[in-house]
């Protein structure tokens, strides 16, 4: 896993033609690139602080003349932000935990055990990697509807309980764990479940953290699946609630929509700032 060593918090020892001082053209281009990605966020924040009449009068004024938080109050008045957030975080966390709980034994079997049909099992995992939820959602929706499980946590969580990618990454990580550790544990009388969850899981911590974070961020932000699996407010998630702030027809109240955007984005961006290394390893680890 060469990727596991990839550091993106530029410390000094980056490999490549880069240990010399950066030429000034590179600095200038980097600032331009930063502007292209940071300014849109800035615009989101600026717009959310503008009163409605300022947006109507001079929509492209770079700064609000009278910054105010009314838009945020309105978001909280229009949608139950706390409940939606709780549902969203609950769904994303449940998926992350389940994926790890299931990927560990599956990855263990594929990496460390010999059995008839192993190749077939591995082929099935790879096949699942290639079938996105966008292919299956019609049938899954109808299956859930048949047993009255639409608009439930189950419909949002269960289809993602097993992660082909997570299984694949756990398997890869386990390949580099020496067999002796497992044999020693077996001689000590440890059960297979003890070996998997008590002995190997701590060794795989970096991989598991990455798998959890990538999954959490993806499902926290997901719009497609909650949209197709819910028809009412019962388990509505935050991205859906925020998207509903832009109701079609009547003029869009952009300061409210952008305030909603800020509320939706800040937790993920904060998580990204804290756990950038793990997230990037998880994403690049697909390579």
């Amino acid at each position: 896993m060469a990727v596991a060593d990839t550091r993106l918090e530029g410390d000094g020892d980056v490999i490549g033609a880069s240990s010399r001082r950066a030429p000034s053209w590179a600095t200038v281009l980097a600032i331009v690139a930063a502007a292209a990605w940071v300014l849109p966020y800035a615009w989101m924040v600026v717009t959310s602080l503008k009163p409605l009449d300022e947006i109507a009068r001079d929509p492209t004024a770079p700064l609000p003349a009278h910054p105010q938080l009314d838009a945020y109050r309105e978001v909280f008045a229009q949608i139950p932000v706390a409940r939606y957030t709780l549902v969203t975080v609950g769904v994303a966390a449940a998926i992350g935990v389940l994926q790890i709980a299931l990927a560990l034994p599956a990855g263990y079997a594929l990496a460390k055990l010999r059995f008839v049909g192993k190749k077939t099992a591995f082929a099935l995992v790879v096949a699942c990697l290639l079938v996105p939820p966008q292919v299956t959602f019609v049938s899954v929706f109808l299956m859930f509807a048949k047993v009255s499980l639409t608009n439930t946590f189950g419909a949002l969580v269960l289809p993602f309980a097993a992660s082909a990618l997570g299984t694949f990454l756990v398997r890869q990580a386990l390949m580099s764990v020496p067999d002796e550790i497992i044999e020693a544990a077996r001689l000590d009388g440890a059960s297979e479940l003890t070996i998997i969850y008590r002995i190997l899981a701590p060794l795989l911590r970096p991989t598991l953290v990455s798998v959890f974070l990538v999954s959490f961020v993806y499902h926290y932000s997901d719009y497609f699946w909650p949209l197709v699996m819910t028809t009412d407010d019962t388990v509505r998630t935050l991205p859906l609630g925020i998207a509903l702030l832009k109701e079609p027809g009547s003029g869009v109240r952009w300061h409210v929509v952008m305030a909603g955007n800020v509320i939706l984005s800040v937790p993920v961006l904060a998580l990204f700032a804290i756990a950038q290394k793990h997230l990037i390893r998880g994403v690049a680890g697909r390579a």
Partner: peptide
């Protein structure tokens, strides 16, 4: 951006952050 230094690290992070933020926020923006 494959260069050492705080500025380049920040720019890498800024660009990657868009991948992390919800599609809803990006599309509405």
């Amino acid at each position: 951006l494959d260069r050492p230094g705080g500025l380049f690290a920040f720019v890498r992070g800024a660009i990657f952050s868009a991948y992390v933020v919800s599609w809803v926020a990006v599309a509405l923006l």
